[in-house]
Design a protein around this nucleic acid. Structure first.
Lengths: 213, 213
DNA sequence: GTCTATAGATTGATAGAC
DNA sequence: GTCTATCAATCTATAGAC
């Protein structure tokens, strides 16, 4: 998963090559992520990516087999600098993430645009995002329960007749807020503060689940 | 704005033609809305739409001038059966809307997919969605304030140093939740109940704004 | 008002050179 | 391992027939 492949030992005293680009594949990956983010997947051509690297579209395809293969590789390339904590602190981490997202429009746009685009027929990233949401909901549901007083934990965690718990609904809500805010923010950065609103919703939901239903 | 053009007076006693398709333009509009919803805008070709109507792509273009013109016309075609109420009841109406959206995946998908896609460079629907969000935030902010006790209304409505009020943050949150839930629901309809979660968030936010900050 | 024929550019991908 | 030449399919849009 590391982005840092082994560097050949040149055993010279010359200053180390300034973080030389390792191989073409990684270079293409970064460029593709950037262009998919700003243009979406379907609206991006292999020629767009190839042009930025001064090669032909087929040069790109060589490394990934198909345009879909390239997309899959881009999605796998998560740049989580810090690992997400477990349990209650995870909710604070989400606010921090929202704050960080405000400072990296590229990555924010990549996932905001692609997640919605994946909800179209036969989109190659559909399974990837469906699985991602399933895992996120489960983890955040746990984090919400962790934040509640033990006395409320039972009711909030108990699945209803539809198999979904109140904490699960809150988890879906938190993810949805973060996603929805990204679109609003990308269209109009001055209009919303993603971190502030995310924090507000988390606080409100935790407080709500700490009351009698 | 009406979708019902004047019908020629035939003055006969024959049963009225059973809501006959009025003109080709409307027919194309409906078809385009359907295909844009399931495939997104950029991934839809004029040929896709034309094929469903058994005409050539140019036949489609005749009525709208360009593919972008067609998209604009589709967005203008809102199918709001019931008008949205003003003030506090608007929040209940949003829950009803979420419920109704669960029963019309096509329309839901249209706006969910296109709104995120519009956040890409030079997308023709960008202004349309930016304006739509601005208006929605303002209206829902008003609805939230309307729901609060008069004693809390001042604090929640007062703009902070960034020009945004707590009620405005709540409004952005409500819209974001509804949007984000749509993507999760489109990818996995069993996993979330859009109306339930929307209601939960609205209740939680209103309760939160009714407390001391 | 409605549409087809056709153009001109661009697409993703294969085959094969180095 | 890296890439170019090339292809067949598909794209939007113009020009003009009916």
């Amino acid at each position: 998963m590391s982005e840092t492949p082994p560097v050949p030992d040149t055993r010279n005293t010359a200053p180390p090559a300034p973080r030389r680009r390792v191989n073409r594949r990684d270079q293409i990956l970064r460029t593709a992520a950037e262009v998919f983010a700003t243009q979406g997947f379907h609206n991006t051509s292999l020629a767009d990516i190839a042009a930025m690297l001064d090669i032909t579209p087929a040069g790109v395809l060589h490394h990934f087999g198909s345009k879909t293969g390239l997309l899959t590789a881009v999605l796998e390339l998560r740049d989580d600098t810090e690992p997400a904590p477990e349990g209650g602190p995870m909710l604070d981490h989400l606010v921090t993430t929202a704050e960080r997202n405000s400072e990296r429009p590229g990555t924010t746009q990549l996932y905001a645009v692609l997640s919605a685009e994946s909800a179209t027929e036969n989109h190659p990233a559909q399974d990837w995002f469906r699985d991602r949401y399933t895992i996120l909901r489960r983890d955040i549901e746990g984090a919400v329960l962790d934040r509640l007083d033990p006395e409320h934990r039972g009711a909030a965690g108990a699945p209803g007749p539809d198999g979904r718990s109140a904490a699960g609904a809150a988890a879906a809500a938190v993810i949805a807020v973060m996603d929805g805010l990204q679109v609003q923010w990308l269209l109009d950065p001055e209009a919303v503060d993603m971190a502030e609103v995310t924090g507000l919703v988390i606080d409100a939901l935790v407080a709500r689940l700490s009351q009698e239903g």
